[in-house]
């Protein structure tokens, strides 16, 4: 198998790199190079459509060529997009690209949630229970107001992605720092106790706070964003 291995290695090397081929229009090696490139492009651009628009097709295709040369590791093509995202995160040419990390998270997050399987568990409101983010939801801090389009002034905000069980699609929602803190607290303490902590921190009346928190938690339970701590 020594010769065979050497032939296969050289073949893959030609596909992966951009060395000039003789008579490229009629060179069958070019057919393979194009096929592999198209396969990566189709998958990546489907998963990162906004990022592709932001970077432009030409630049995106160059990054994809570089990525092919390094090589994807997963046998599952849909998971390759995650490896590509990590490749871009560490690419020196993209160090100063604004919002790159957030865009990668948002676009891959949507695919990730659409690719997962979940148990459809709807939690009920219970003041004596702890809650946690379900596997059908993702949350991330950002430093600007997404909906207001205020991308230049620094402002704490968070983005919630969740899978809608009835519509079978992923929704995006901007949430306040207060809402994010509530999610974080609920992982560590009961709903009752979380309200007390927040009321103290923001110097608010606990009874008034209770009403608005109740609405929020009921909504999140309905959306399956939150589940009770013991539920899997």
């Amino acid at each position: 198998m020594k010769t065979e291995t050497a032939v296969m290695e050289r073949f893959v090397q030609i596909i992966q790199n951009n060395e000039e081929l003789s008579n490229p229009l009629h060179n069958r090696l070019q057919v393979y190079r194009d096929m592999v490139h198209s396969r990566f492009v189709e998958t990546i651009e489907n998963i990162y459509p906004i990022l592709t628009t932001v970077l432009g097709n030409a630049m995106m295709h160059n990054f994809i060529r570089e990525f092919i040369a390094i090589g994807a590791k997963t046998p599952f093509i849909v998971k390759m997009a995650e490896e590509f995202g990590n490749f871009l995160r560490h690419h020196p040419k993209l160090k100063s690209t604004l919002f790159l990390e957030d865009l990668l998270w948002l676009e891959y997050g949507e695919l990730d949630l659409l690719s997962r399987d979940f148990k459809d568990i709807q939690a009920q409101l219970d003041w004596k229970k702890r809650y946690r983010l379900s596997s059908s939801a993702l949350v991330r801090n950002v430093s600007y107001r997404v909906h207001a389009g205020e991308f230049e002034s620094s402002c704490a905000s968070s983005v919630l992605l969740y899978y809608h069980f009835d519509e079978k699609r992923v929704y995006f929602e901007e949430i306040t720092p207060f809402a994010l803190q509530l999610i974080e607290l609920l992982e560590r303490m009961t709903l009752e106790r979380s309200i007390m902590v927040l009321a103290k921190k923001y110097e608010l009346d606990a009874e008034i706070l209770r009403e608005s928190v109740e609405q929020l938690v009921v909504k999140w339970c309905h959306q399956r964003v939150l589940i009770k701590f013991t539920e899997v």
Binding site: V12, R39, G71, K73, T74
Partner: peptide, 13 residues
């Protein structure tokens, strides 16, 4: 090849 995926069916010797 060598753990690198091409996601295409490549020809064998």
């Amino acid at each position: 090849l060598g753990g690198m995926q091409m996601y295409e069916l490549l020809p064998l010797p």
